[in-house]
Design a protein around this nucleic acid. Structure first.
Lengths: 342, 342
DNA sequence: CTGAAAGCGCTTACAG
DNA sequence: CTGAAAGCGCTTACAG
């Protein structure tokens, strides 16, 4: 295969200087229409397209965005494996990024230093942080001076970076209210980690608000934390719940994955969902419609979230806009079969 | 933040030329131990790490590998969404790639031309093709002259590229044999697409071999094709099966996703798995242990597959090894609750 | 063993 | 409106 033509060859073919070719390709300065035409034709004839590596080096802009994945035991695998969430998100990012002429790199992140080096050595134009990272990472990243968008982060960092989130409070509220309407009063709340996950905390707030508004007394003993999102952890809380003396009749959960794990554990003990326990998840994963019973859940559009994040990021890159914005995407209760009137 | 030091600054600090710094960093030529030490110290002091963009431009090697994802309706989303498969695979690739100092880019692929441009403009060192692509793409890619590893491809391209696959024939055999041992004789085979998917075809062969070896007559009417891998498509075949007059008692499937869709459809009609139908999946997704009933399936280690692919690819890149190899990873029957003696 | 110089493929003041 | 030249941060024959 004949190799890719360079800008020089295009210039020669068009009878102009490389600089001129660069000008027309970048739409910069005023090039006479005639020479512009000649250049464009040369580009077309030679099937020229620029070398991004070279552009990256001279412009110090790579047209590359990076997605930081949280690592568990040094690999993003486990998070990917149990949290189908991420995968859809990444697809959303890839789609808009490709359409907007950016490429997307992914990495599991190690320490902050490694992360900064990754950005620097590849000249990344922007970053998306998917998930929760140690605080010092954010501080480190702040000094990088490139647009960064955070996903599902609250408080502390919100004003330092752009942020895409979902109406978590409302989600928790919707889930709990649904159960309450069905006549449930003893409603458990299953979180991952209320302290370190602000997302969980918000949903928890919503849950509490629903109780409060309907005059149901909040019972701390009905709150559980799993510290991880896997089916297995769902199973484990279910066992805890069964052992406790404060038995709920309804269960609000912070993730479909957890909800599915819980259902499984119950079913293994021949306890029926929704007859014995009503369960509501969060996310609406594609699997959730196909479990038995299908899962009532709070839906968020994760693919949309990915697209939104990419658009926001690329906007910031292209306009060098320093305004950080935080965007809140809607949430919707999807009623299926895992919940039932008491 | 002070900006990243360049090789010049390191050279100055060490009192040598940039060339020398480059030599020691690349372990090339013989640099006296003493100056080497000085350089290394400078590197350390200044916290220097090279700019990959520059290296990429001058070496024409990017330390970048690309993963091509199949596109559905212009986005990888849907395939990602229903095929949890890919996500684990990508994690495996990312892990070894990172450990071996490569970065990984992902893209949905459009047409062959777009694909070649992607490789060229980013100077990608190697490519992994995940899934099935149109034939002309392979031909086009062949002219790129970079190492490429294909996943789950058979025949035609096997000798043009490296290939990682799984013992599909055995997988089909294992699944069918298991059912046969349980006393099933009318065993359906649910494929995606026997014509265009060689993977399916191999599993089908294995299934037939199992029938043959035990003297069960193969019945073509028990073969179904879904033409896509989604829960929904699983549901649809289940309905077809229920409508047909040739009812199986056991069902062998080419994917857990399909199997789960089938189970769902049956359960919605109050048909019991495994009492009325025994079902075996393929892949062993993490969800498959958590469905009710949990799914008997043929396990393949997809994460391992990703790691293997990345290692093979990077080996080829680094040794400029032109030998294409095809590697076959093992497969294992995991017996759970969706199958039962007749 | 070490360095000056050219080059990778672009971009961008600057001059005309 | 157009081009020559320097520069982005490296590498690598080549010469010494």
């Amino acid at each position: 295969m004949n190799k890719k033509p360079t800008i020089k060859e295009v210039a020669k073919y068009a009878g102009v200087s490389p600089a001129t070719v660069s000008y027309v390709l970048n739409g910069v300065k005023k090039v006479s229409n005639e020479t512009k035409k000649r250049v464009l034709e040369a580009v077309d004839q030679l099937n020229y397209y620029p070398d991004f590596t070279a552009i990256s080096l001279s412009k110090r802009k790579s047209n590359l965005i990076g997605i930081m994945l949280p690592l568990i035991e040094d690999t993003p695998a486990s998070v990917f494996k149990n949290n189908f969430y991420y995968t859809e998100f990444v697809s959303g990012v890839e789609l808009v990024s490709r359409n907007r002429k950016f490429d997307t790199m992914i990495t599991g992140v190690g320490n902050p230093e490694e992360c900064r080096q990754w950005v620097k050595k590849r000249n990344l134009d922007g970053l998306i942080f998917l998930g929760l990272f140690p605080e010092k990472l954010y501080n480190e990243m702040k000094t990088l001076n490139i647009p960064i968008v955070l996903i599902d982060t609250y408080e502390k960092y919100t004003n330092l970076f752009s942020n895409i989130q979902v109406n978590d409070e409302l989600g928790g509220y919707l889930a709990a209210s649904h159960l309450i309407e069905l006549g449930h009063k003893d409603i458990a709340f299953i979180a991952t980690d209320l302290k370190s996950s602000p997302v969980d905390a918000k949903r928890y707030q919503g849950y509490k608000r629903a109780l409060q508004e309907t005059g149901i007394k909040f019972n701390e003993k009905l709150t559980y934390q799993t510290y991880d999102i896997t089916f297995e952890h769902g199973k484990k809380v279910a066992e805890e719940i069964l052992k406790s003396e404060q038995k709920p009749t309804g269960i609000v959960t912070v993730s479909d994955v957890l909800a599915i794990g819980i259902m499984k554990a119950l079913q293994m003990k021949h306890i029926q969902v929704p007859n014995d326990y009503s369960i509501v998840g969060f996310d609406d994963l594609s699997i959730s419609e196909y479990t038995t019973p299908s899962l009532t859940t709070v839906r968020q559009d994760i693919f949309e979230k990915g697209k939104y994040a990419a658009n926001l990021l690329i906007n910031a890159i292209e306009s060098e806009d320093v305004e950080h914005q935080t965007v809140e995407l809607p949430v919707e209760l999807i009623i299926r079969q895992s919940t039932k009137a008491l």
